[in-house]
Design a binder for these strands. Structure first.
Lengths: 330, 330
DNA sequence: TTGTAAGCGTTATCAC
DNA sequence: GTGATAACGCTTACAA
């Protein structure tokens, strides 16, 4: 090499600084930076059998909860010089599977996958390669996978019970598309379960499922509150929304319809986006630290990469944030 | 190999399907999938001298504009089997530089970098390696770098002129931190320039700079509108905000202060987040297709990777969306 | 059409 | 403490 040493020494200078004479080391590093030289990672990966690459598969970055999760994961991995490969499935199982395959091919040493509603081959392929992985954002005690997240069913069960305890009996529900989304499925199940425990249920006309947007929240609230009601008593006195944007839409539409919140109608959201606290009245919602879920997932995987057997990550517990949008029914 | 063929044939079966007998090809693919075998990307990269990896460096995923950009970029790259390495600098030049170095080491073949306010070494290192790159989200006609984005100065110049044409003469400004952020710097410059063209300027007490949050928007508006005013006439009749969240905060605070928008005060934002249209009154703002910026950047880079000389991407032009938050001053 | 064999740029194992 | 040298798992002339 230009520094007058063998390639072996260069390699050591970079990877095992203590195994090389300080003076030589300095010279190597100096010429390297003078030449703008950099170890070729692919060659290193091949020789070492390690790539220092991890992968994350999420539905989409459009959703701030996943963006936050990836941000947290990325920082945590960066502290150990692990780079993050990102794949967005757009809520498509096949696309998620393709991303997983591509990542495995690129030699990812660990994989974080949002949710567990995936093609079985996905987990099989990962297992076949012995690559450590976690399912993020969701948590089920009896899941076959290691999870880092919270129990969606339990969270919505809690929110529903909160409304029931306030005295509500007729409850509406506006959620994101359930198909292929185990988190939403669990949320709906949580609501139904809590209702069933009090001998109640969800009326078909009081449930709406569609894209999570303010617009769909508005439209859904109007449909629910002005549907063919045999008697006004069957109109819900509370509406649970799958996330804050749906809830904000519902809140705005309630105002537009002349319904007083929370007097005529209670509304709840999920995520505690910045806007939730700013609404009039403030939105009752639940908060999860998504960046933390990302960094916990990364830490877990890093530990496994280091050969350790990390203890399972305990489920995160969302905070129920009570604001002005909920109250006992009139 | 297990399929009874040489490694060369396996390689061809995967990379040059037409160069191998269909029957053999089928057998190879079949045994490969049966064994769960997959070409080792690092080895391939080493032998071929190509990694099929691109990198993107952005400040943070917390900001939906960057998240959207990365989403668009990722999809566009995915269509050509290029995977995206992501790095977040948290608005720190050193961190951005470190990410760039790490990515170059990983063998990225193209780089997209948000903004041009970076350490000069960053661009030098990239140039030294001959890696194609683009600066995203910002555009300046006389920039030394290839840009994919819009002219931030021009956009805010336009917005300011719009307010001036409505008849405003005293204008306030609430923006994100300028330090190390060329996009924001350009926006402020655009405002000052438009004012200067009419012989006007920004009063010190009417300018606020801080984190882009609803909270800072509120706090800033209150400070601006209740500052030590020698005479009420010097209070601004319009406030330009660096993004929609600041503007939404300003709008909410104006309402809280009993100021009528737009009668007493006009307010403008930037980005057209979903909430902007839902405010009362709707927020006048500007919209940019961020996902498109991402995919345009990826397409440009892909073209360069293919050996082509893509024509420079024309600057995107934000739409000025006029809503109820602006009107002539009283 | 298929096989042989020489790299690709590191790391790791030996000697020295 | 340092230098040869054999892997690592592929791609790609070149031969057959």
């Amino acid at each position: 090499m230009a520094a007058g040493v063998s390639t072996a020494t260069v390699s050591r200078a970079f990877n095992n600084p203590e195994k090389v004479a300080p003076e030589v080391r300095a010279r190597v590093l100096a010429t390297a930076s003078a030449l703008g030289w950099m170890p070729h990672a692919a060659a290193g990966a091949l020789a070492r059998g390690r790539t220092n690459i991890a992968g994350a598969i999420i539905p989409t970055l459009d959703n701030e909860i996943f963006a936050a999760q990836i941000g947290g994961m990325q920082s945590a991995f960066a502290t150990r010089a692990v780079t993050l490969l990102l794949g967005c499935s757009n809520y498509d199982r096949d696309e998620a599977f393709r991303h997983a395959q591509a990542m495995l091919g690129k030699g990812v040493e660990a994989l974080a996958i949002a949710g567990e509603a995936h093609r079985p081959e996905l987990f099989e392929t990962i297992a076949a390669r012995g690559v450590p992985y976690v399912v993020t954002y969701s948590y089920r005690a009896d899941s076959p996978h290691p999870c880092v997240g919270f129990d969606n069913r339990e969270a919505f069960h809690r929110m529903t019970r909160y409304l029931l305890d306030l005295g509500h009996r007729e409850i509406g529900l506006i959620v994101q598309p359930v198909a292929g989304n185990d988190r939403i499925e669990a949320r709906v199940a949580g609501v139904r379960e809590a209702l069933a425990e009090r001998g109640l249920g969800l009326r078909a006309g009081h449930v709406r499922e569609g894209e999570w947007s303010i617009g769909f929240g508005r439209e859904s609230l109007r449909a629910i509150m002005s549907g063919p009601a045999p008697r006004p008593a069957s109109r819900p006195t509370a509406v649970i929304c799958g996330n804050d944007w749906l809830a904000i839409g519902a809140l705005l539409e309630a105002r537009a319809m002349g319904l007083a919140v929370p007097t005529d109608l209670s509304i709840t959201g999920f995520d505690d986006v910045a806007m939730a606290a700013q609404m009039e009245p403030g939105l009752t919602t639940m908060r999860v630290d998504n960046a933390r879920i990302g960094s916990l997932a990364a830490d877990y995987l890093l530990e496994r990469l280091g050969g350790g057997t990390p203890s399972p990550v305990p489920p995160q517990v969302p905070d129920l944030i009570e604001r002005g949008s909920t109250a006992p029914p009139r």
